[in-house]
Design a protein around this nucleic acid. Structure first.
Lengths: 341, 341
DNA sequence: TTGTATGCGTTATCAG
DNA sequence: CTGATAACGCATACAA
């Protein structure tokens, strides 16, 4: 069976015995077309299984009703959930969401965004790294509406929607300090993540303010469970190990739990553990993970709303929407066994 | 700042003092162009930040180097992982992967696929529901290469890549039977999922063959944790509750664990629990979840390979690649406390 | 080596 | 109410 060429407007028009323009009008409900012609066209289109060519429509300057979204990766429940929520919000407004990942490779990310800018989507939701710098000015001049999600880099005119990180981290650390912890380890997030930077900034400032800053308690991370495990191994192997570990993501905190298990440490009796995100499993894994809940739904909802407004002719500029995060205390944090003097 | 219209080939040509065709040739490395002209063009393109318009390129019949992938949802680690693996494989071959979700709504799914067929992607990776029936014949005639993933519906000429489900489920149930379980509950998967149907088929046949079939032990599900929780509540509330529960996905099995906790049941002493997928957390949540590992990486790899072959002119038809699944026994299954006589 | 003409499928505009 | 025309941006065939 030979591949049949796509059914086009012209095919439908021929079958219906009218012009292509008329078909276009009927199918888009634009001009005034007689009832009779409308039916003829509808029938012909249905018969041929006609579907408009997105590329042509887009080229002509029309809408594709597709929103593009670029995220660093999808394996973190965080991004999967964010994407799902955005897809939902878009779907409710009759838009589809096309998702692209960058594998945290800035170069690839740019190309991908450029390609999307190149005219596939009506608008873009971007989770960009902090170092996007001058690239953003290119984006600002784009004719495609853009909303940045969780951007914490330099100033930009593009609208930004993000979840709060600093205050949430501060609240979490105060919780640990109030429990009596003095040596609190930290495992950082992905290198280019603005959110990771915020969490680290909060950690450093709180620890410094408390006179507890110790560089050896800081381990690099990347949001993955593996790095959580490795970082925790390093921290627990210290001559004077921490009594609590704050991991920059729940996934890493799960890795910390593994490390604790490896060393036969009880959580929270021997080691308190905290994460960030409040992923669905945080409450499930015994003894329950103390963490910071991020307003994913709000972020997704608001960014889609902003983007659609821009697409539908109401461009927003210099807007910053920040949603609060919330400390969630569960069983993984408790007073240290042997509080230091 | 007014939005600048897109930089086109013509703009670059004007700046470089050549024709648009020459620019096209240089940028695509096609014809023979003098060194000098090439440099002029490259400079001009870089200066203007020129990026080809994907829609135009596609319309012209060219490649977008984008693969479209349609999955039912992204929150299951299963699909997130599948998408990631596919994106990786595509990326290694210089392709991008655009991901679309259907929210398990068959109608939406069709429209979305049609739209993608409408000319955005060079090829399509589809995770379609079993009931796709006559829709598949439309797909078969499409001019865009298509590979079906995890399809278990009726016959089709489209290439299919899938993970094995039946045998894996049989192995899992035999494991439970060998432990001495006689009343084994089952919580099904999503309604339109072919994989869910396979797992159920295996459950029914094994239980019937063992003379242990009891319809009241079957609960509907949808792969989510919530449904696992609800299904388990129903099963454990039975006058004669099961001593083991097999949930059609790990996520649902986690829900079953919650239900066990609610009733104060110890796992595996009072209740054995098994899942399907071997998601990353299956080994993490104490006491470790017995489950069936699905060859996600193989599926993703093979489907992308097949698709790229088709795109690059080597269409495959009537091909079925099935990768084996594997039983993974962990701590959540053990002999029942009080084996029935 | 470079450029001209042409068409991909759609839709806005304007004429009939 | 309907249709002819043009244009979107690119890349191919062919001509110079």
């Amino acid at each position: 069976m030979r591949r049949r060429a796509r059914t086009t407007l012209v095919d439908v028009a021929r079958l219906a015995g009218v012009s292509a323009v008329t078909v276009s009008k009927v199918l888009n409900g634009k001009g005034h077309i007689s009832q009779e012609t409308q039916e003829k066209v509808q029938r012909a289109a249905a018969l041929l299984g006609y579907v408009a060519n997105t590329a042509a429509r887009r080229l002509r300057g029309g809408a594709t009703r597709i929103l593009g979204m670029v995220v660093p990766e999808l394996v973190s429940p965080y991004f999967a959930e964010l994407a799902r929520a955005a897809a939902d919000a878009a779907g409710r407004c009759g838009y589809d969401l096309g998702l692209f990942t960058t594998s945290r490779d800035p170069q690839r990310e740019r190309e991908r965004i450029q390609s999307l800018l190149g005219g596939m989507a009506d608008g873009l939701l971007l989770v960009v790294p902090v170092g996007a710098g001058e690239f953003l000015s290119t984006l600002e001049q784009s004719q495609v509406p853009i909303v940045l999600i969780n951007y914490f880099g330099g100033a930009t005119h593009l609208p930004v929607v993000r979840g709060e990180n600093y205050e949430g981290t501060v609240a979490l650390l105060h919780h640990l300090l109030a429990l009596g912890h003095r040596r609190i380890g930290f495992i950082g997030g992905a290198e280019h993540s603005g959110q990771a930077k915020e969490r680290y900034r909060a950690y450093r400032e709180v620890m410094r303010a408390a006179g507890l800053w110790d560089e050896t308690l800081v381990q690099p991370g990347d949001f993955t469970r593996r790095k959580g495990l490795e970082g925790a191994r390093a921290l627990l192997g210290l001559p004077s190990p921490p009594t609590a570990i704050f991991a920059g993501s729940d996934l890493m905190a799960f890795g910390v739990m593994e490390a604790a298990q490896e060393r036969g440490l009880q959580v929270p009796a021997d080691l308190s553990i905290a994460g960030f995100d409040d992923s669905p499993l945080a409450g499930l894994i015994p003894p329950g993970l103390t963490t910071v809940a991020h307003p994913i739904a709000d972020i997704a909802e608001a960014s889609v709303r902003l983007l659609l407004e821009a697409i539908e002719g109401n461009p927003v500029r210099d807007q910053l929407l920040e949603f609060p995060s919330r400390l969630v205390v569960r069983g993984s944090t408790a007073p240290p066994k042997t509080p230091l003097p």
